[in-house]
C-alpha cells in the first residue's frame, strides 16, 4: 500500500460521523463610508492613501515624486518617458531593480485595508513583492465591506495566482519593533479614484 492509500484509509477509518458544513451568513458591515474606512484602516497598518480624480493624476503624482533614473513599471497605462510595461514572458529575476510598480487592483476591502490582485493585473507574479515601492490604483466604487463580500465578489473566478495585499511588507520579529520593508515593498500607496 502506498502512502496515499495508507493515509486516506487511515483517515476514512478514523474520521468522526459526518458533521454538516454551517451557514456562513454575516452582517454586511457598515456600507456607509467604505472608502474612508478603507483609507483609515490601510493608513493604520502602514499604507498611504491619496484620493485622486483620474489615472492621469496618478501619473502626475509619480512624476512629481520620483526621479527619472528609477525604474518604474506601470500597468495602468504608460507614463510618457517614465515607465515601461512588461509582458509575462519576462524573467522575474530581471525585475529585481524595479523601484516602483504601479498596478490596478480588482477591489479593496474596507475592514482590513487589503486590495485583491490576480496575476494578469500584476504582469508578473513577483512584481508586487520585489519592487521597492508598490502603488495601487483602486476605484472607490470597488471597495467591499469585509472578507465575506470579498469572496462573494471573487466568486468562482479562475486565476493562476492571486493575492490580498494590505500595506507594505513588514516585520516585528525583533523585540516586536515594527519595521516596514522586510523583504517586499517598503511602502504601499493606494490611489483611490473618485468614480
Amino acid at each position: 500500500m502506498n502512502d496515499r492509500e495508507q493515509i486516506i484509509n487511515a483517515i476514512a477509518a478514523n474520521q468522526p460521523a459526518f458533521s454538516p458544513s454551517p451557514a456562513t451568513h454575516f452582517s454586511a458591515g457598515d456600507q456607509e463610508g467604505l472608502a474612508s474606512q478603507f483609507a483609515d484602516t490601510l493608513t493604520a497598518i502602514g499604507g498611504v492613501v491619496f484620493i485622486v480624480d483620474s489615472l492621469a493624476d496618478i501619473h502626475q503624482h509619480i512624476k512629481d515624486n520620483t526621479s527619472a533614473e528609477h525604474r518604474v513599471i506601470s500597468r495602468i497605462g504608460g507614463i510618457a518617458g517614465y515607465s515601461e510595461d512588461i509582458d509575462t514572458t519576462l524573467s522575474p529575476h530581471s525585475l529585481q531593480d524595479v523601484e516602483i510598480a504601479v498596478l490596478k487592483a480588482h477591489f479593496g476591502v474596507a475592514e482590513n485595508g487589503a486590495v485583491w490582485l490576480t496575476e494578469e493585473l500584476m504582469g508578473n507574479r513577483v512584481l508586487p513583492f520585489i519592487c521597492q515601492h508598490l502603488m495601487i490604483a483602486l476605484y472607490m466604487k470597488d471597495i467591499v465591506a469585509n472578507m465575506h463580500k470579498a469572496y462573494e465578489r471573487i466568486g468562482s473566478n479562475s486565476y493562476g495566482f492571486g493575492a490580498f495585499i494590505a500595506g507594505p511588507s513588514k516585520t516585528a520579529d525583533i523585540e516586536q519593533s515594527l519595521v516596514m520593508g522586510a523583504h517586499g515593498p517598503k511602502t504601499m500607496t493606494v490611489f483611490l479614484i473618485r468614480s
Binding site: 497598518i45 492571486g162 490580498f164 494590505a166
Partner: peptide
C-alpha cells in the same frame, strides 16, 4: 486585521 500578504 489581516496579514500583509494572503497569497492564493
Amino acid at each position: 486585521p489581516i496579514t500583509t500578504y494572503s497569497s492564493h
